[in-house]
């Protein structure tokens, strides 16, 4: 049977595999770090930029944006540099799902644009999106994206002037493009605004306030953070356990060019730590979903 021969050959290859010990422990450690990176971490690239607690616009100040239910379309084409940054954030391929799987339903890399970014000292914090969803990106000129580009779907058509679409923690990258000690993270907030919004201000616990970069209906802001020893960890995996610095978004405020407040989101109980719309069906959070 030819199918059987093929199966036997594959079994023969599999027989070469040697058992591995300690994989669960390493996976659990990796998962903790990954959670920190993914949830908290937009920011390495932006870490420096936001260290001064201000966002540095690189794509120009908003011109009022446009009415958007989703990402901008191709009529507002990126410049060559913006396309290069988008490609770098996507690591030259389409983003993957959270399982690393291909997602043909979300399109190809060329279907994603740079929507808005903060860039400083060769590092960047960016929102790259398409019609179906977006990717948060923290990286540098050298690394592109410090983490694997992960797709998140646009799921909320917003009625107000402001939509908080993502609150994330990203892995930080160093200015030279080399990842730092792995403990640097970026707390990031990104979303959409209506045309009347010119400025967006994000406030985290502890009072840190950052003016977001707003461009063509999108905004993004970040502030640097660290992973810290988890002294409360218990059990066999507690040795060396790390956790994200505790910092949550407390409010996001949208202003007109004249300084008037047109919309404001305030975190409710349990909100502000990390959020993507796709999590809505599984969360009790209401104001964000």
């Amino acid at each position: 049977m030819t199918d059987q021969m093929l199966k036997d050959a594959l079994e023969g290859i599999a027989d070469r595999a040697e058992p591995v010990d300690g994989m669960a422990e390493r996976a659990l450690k990796g998962a903790r770090r990954r959670r920190t990176v993914r949830l908290s971490g937009v920011a390495s690239a932006v870490a420096v930029a936001t260290a001064a607690a201000i966002a540095v616009p690189i794509a120009g100040q908003p011109d009022g944006g446009r009415t958007l239910a989703g990402p901008r379309d191709g009529t507002t084409a990126n410049t060559a540099a913006e396309r290069a940054l988008a490609r770098a954030c996507l690591r030259n391929g389409p983003p993957a799902g959270h399982m690393g799987q291909d997602r043909p339903d979300i399109g190809k890399a060329r279907d994603f644009w740079l929507l808005v970014a903060v860039k400083e000292n060769r590092r960047h914090l960016a929102l790259v999106g398409g019609t179906s969803g977006f990717v948060l990106c923290s990286g540098s000129d050298a690394t592109g994206n410090a983490d694997l580009p992960t797709f998140h779907r646009w799921t909320k058509a917003f009625e107000g002037a402001l939509s908080v679409d993502a609150i994330g923690h990203l892995q930080a990258a160093s200015p030279k493009g080399v990842r730092d000690d792995g403990h640097g993270i970026v707390f990031a907030v990104a979303g959409r605004v209506k045309p009347q919004v010119s400025r967006v201000q994000v406030t985290w616990t502890g009072g840190r306030t950052v003016w977001a970069t707003v461009d063509n209906g999108y905004y993004i802001a970040g502030t640097p953070g660290r992973r810290i020893p988890d002294k409360g960890a218990t059990g066999p995996m507690s040795d060396g356990a790390m956790k994200d610095e505790d910092r949550k978004v407390t409010s996001v405020t949208a202003y007109t060019a004249g300084g008037g407040v047109v919309d404001r989101w305030r975190a409710g109980p349990g909100e502000g730590g990390m959020f993507f719309h796709e999590d809505c069906p599984r969360t009790t959070s209401t104001s964000l979903c």
């Binding site: 599999a14 070469r16 595999a17 990796g30 990954r34 959670r35 959270h98």
Partner: peptide, 26 residues
């Protein structure tokens, strides 16, 4: 075993499985 068939050698297989388990744990 599956990782080995996919990756082609022990080192790559361990790395692949480790990545998959880390994602699963998360």
């Amino acid at each position: 075993r599956t990782a080995y068939v996919l990756a082609g050698d022990q080192h790559a297989a361990e790395d692949l499985l480790q990545t998959a388990l880390t994602r699963t744990a998360a």
